[in-house]
């Protein structure tokens, strides 16, 4: 049994202690530190086709596989919380950028859960699916909000903020409103699409979305480096 320690308060990171013969696999770019005895291999888990599916849906072709014995530490690129989701034969869908690592009993595949959601929701709504037995660790940007929905209960989550939800839940995309609302919404940097998730099940939500963060940063860039057309110091 792998031992985990979720450390930190506002910027959480997770340390896993592997025994001899235990392996975990993770998304590339999240390993911070490891014992010298831990070996890293890059594998196209699930075969060529599964890997291609992952690549198409915004995730990675190769998966980092770490084999014990020793310690591995994972972190994300923004402050936020690490969430441990144990799977007991059930499945969850996770926005693929947020995946940290999972135990070897878990199968990682990609899905176009809802074609409308994938195309309209923009970044990150291509979902990674995890099924099997074992723990999955995901990272919530900024912090996590979560909802436990009863049978038939519904919630609308702004598309970029959606982090994870149970595989059996129904998902559909709703627009913000009519055209005028949507244009004003875009100006006000409100999300344009909401994902409606229907219970029963659990929903995890990011408190920060990369899209909104980038939007705010871009506004504060020096004019010459910002997006758009620069005419004599004035930016359009």
């Amino acid at each position: 049994m792998v031992e985990y320690r979720i450390l930190g308060y506002d910027m959480q990171h997770v340390r896993a202690y592997l025994q001899q013969g235990e392996t975990i696999f993770g998304e590339g770019g999240h390993v911070v530190a490891k014992s010298p005895s831990v070996s890293i291999a890059f594998k196209a888990q699930g075969g060529l086709l599964k890997s291609l599916e992952r690549e198409i849906t915004g995730s990675r072709f190769f998966i980092t596989e770490l084999a014990g014995p020793g310690m591995v530490e994972f972190s994300s690129f923004l402050p936020g919380r690490v969430i441990q989701i144990p799977l007991e034969g059930n499945g969850i869908k996770v926005e693929s950028n947020s995946f940290l690592f999972a135990e070897s009993g878990v199968q990682y595949s990609a899905s176009l859960a809802s074609l409308g959601a994938g195309i309209l929701g923009g970044e990150g709504i291509f979902l990674a699916t995890f099924r099997g037995r074992g723990n999955v660790f995901v990272h919530a940007l900024g912090g996590v909000s979560s909802y436990v929905l009863k049978q038939g209960e519904e919630i609308e989550v702004e598309a970029e903020h959606l982090l994870a939800f149970d595989e059996n839940m129904q998902v559909s995309v709703t627009r913000l409103g009519n055209l005028r609302t949507m244009i004003l919404g875009a100006i006000e940097q409100e999300g344009l699409f909401f994902v409606k998730v229907t219970g029963p099940g659990r929903v995890w939500v990011h408190n920060v979305s990369i899209g909104q963060l980038v939007g705010k940063i871009v506004r504060n860039l020096p004019a010459s480096q910002g997006p758009g057309l620069n005419i004599g110091g004035f930016q359009i």
């Binding site: 912090g143 909802y147 009863k150």
Partner: peptide, 13 residues
């Protein structure tokens, strides 16, 4: 921390 209703958690799970 996250606002989850823990009284109904077990039933939903």
């Amino acid at each position: 921390a996250c606002g989850a209703d823990i009284t109904i958690y077990q039933n939903v799970y």
